[in-house]
Computed example of a mutant assay.
Amino acid sequence: MATGEESVNIYQAKTEFSRLIARVEGGERIIISRSGRPVARLVPFSPERSTRHPGAWKGRVAIAPDFDAFATDDAAAWFDE
Rank of each mutant, 00 (worst) to 15 (best):
V61Y: 11
E16M: 13
E48D: 05
R19Q: 11
S7N: 00
I31S: 01
P54Y: 08
D80T: 11
G27K: 02
E48K: 00
P47T: 00
T15Y: 11
G36E: 02
W78L: 05
R37N: 08
A56K: 06
R52P: 07
E5Q: 12
D74W: 02
K58Y: 08
P38C: 08
Y11R: 13
K14L: 05
T15D: 08
K14I: 07
D66S: 09
T15P: 00
S7C: 01
I10M: 10
A22Q: 05
A76G: 01
S35L: 12
N9T: 12
F79L: 15
I31L: 08
A56E: 05
S33V: 02
K58C: 01
D73Y: 02
A2S: 15
F70I: 05
S50L: 13
G26I: 13
R34P: 02
A69V: 09
P65D: 10
G55V: 00
F79D: 05
K58I: 05
M1W: 05
R23Q: 02
G26S: 12
R49F: 14
R37Y: 10
D80R: 15
F67S: 06
P65F: 00
E81R: 13
P44D: 09
F67E: 14
P44I: 11
R29N: 02
G36A: 06
P38F: 06
Q12V: 15
T15S: 12
D74G: 03
G4M: 08
F45C: 14
E48F: 13
